[in-house]
């Protein structure tokens, strides 16, 4: 990957994601979904379960490469490069595009080492203590853990663990942070905290969030992409129905399908 100074293609689109087809073996999981990700905005992916919103998200940082039978057709442009180009190392991609998972998954090491993990990985030369503190402050966790940085990360509560995972992700200042239903394992209070945190993050980062919770998308997302499932050809293939500013999508959807989904007529 070349230097970060390369000008982005379209001014405020960071990731230009054009999915033609995503296969698992012979199964067509997602088709025809073009989702541009805008800089310093929160983009929400919503839709019924099985619509491929997580699959598209995990394609962006090439997490799907872990699945051996995964096959991607299309292109995802990030800083002027196709992430699925022949010479691209998925490992490098993941260092620039951070990820927060559905289940909080801190490593079994101290809170400090969890946050410093990415720094050590990238052979960071600066002041570790300062960077760790900054990341923990950024994740609104500093006050709660500053006196127990040496405790194991797994000893925290679920909501704290998830914020620790966010701190871990932002410690290396990735350009984009992907969040795969980050609140689905959390209680309402912890959910609230994480949502506030996301809104705070967008001044510095670009965030993409998958959620099954429409209210959550409404609360945090600037842009919303609505996916649905096409069962017409006997399979269950997900595709993008429409994408728009969140306010417009929820108040005045262009597609009939979106309207039905938002009014709760199917799920």
């Amino acid at each position: 990957m070349t230097s970060a100074q390369t000008a982005t293609l379209t001014d405020d689109v960071v990731i230009d994601c054009k999915v033609d087809k995503i296969f698992y073996g012979n199964f067509l999981a997602v088709r025809d979904s073009d989702v541009p990700i805008y800089k310093n905005k929160i983009t929400g992916f919503i839709g019924p379960s099985g619509c491929g919103k997580s699959t598209v998200l995990k394609s962006i940082n090439r997490m799907n490469d872990l699945v051996r039978i995964f096959r991607f057709e299309g292109r995802i442009h990030f800083e002027g490069q196709d992430l699925y180009g022949t010479n691209v190392d998925p490992v490098s991609v993941r260092r620039h595009i951070g990820m927060v998972f559905q289940q909080p998954n801190p490593f079994s090491m101290s809170i400090y080492e969890n946050v410093a993990f990415g720094l050590r990985l990238n052979r960071y030369k600066g002041d570790y203590d300062a960077r760790v503190e900054e990341a923990l402050r950024g994740a609104a966790l500093w006050k709660e853990v500053k006196d127990k940085l040496q405790n194991n990360g797994m000893s925290l509560s679920g909501g704290q663990q998830q914020r620790l995972c966010i701190a871990r992700a932002i410690a290396t200042k990735p350009t984009v942070i992907l969040m795969d239903e980050p609140c689905s394992a959390l209680d309402p209070i912890a959910t609230r905290q994480v949502e506030e945190l996301m809104i705070g993050l967008k001044s510095e980062y670009t965030v993409v969030i998958v959620t099954h919770n429409m209210q959550q998308a409404q609360r945090v997302a600037d842009k919303t992409a609505f996916f649905s499932v096409d069962i017409s050809q006997g399979g269950r293939t997900g595709y993008l129905v429409e994408m728009n500013d969140t306010g417009k999508l929820f108040e005045n959807p262009r597609e009939q399908l979106t309207k039905e989904y938002l009014s709760g007529e199917f799920s």
Binding site: G118, A171, K173, P174
Partner: peptide
């Protein structure tokens, strides 16, 4: 902390 921030204001991520 603020000094540090100014010194390291680029992305930290480097390829392996």
């Amino acid at each position: 902390l603020s000094n540090q921030q100014q010194q390291n204001d680029g992305p930290i991520a480097v390829p392996p």
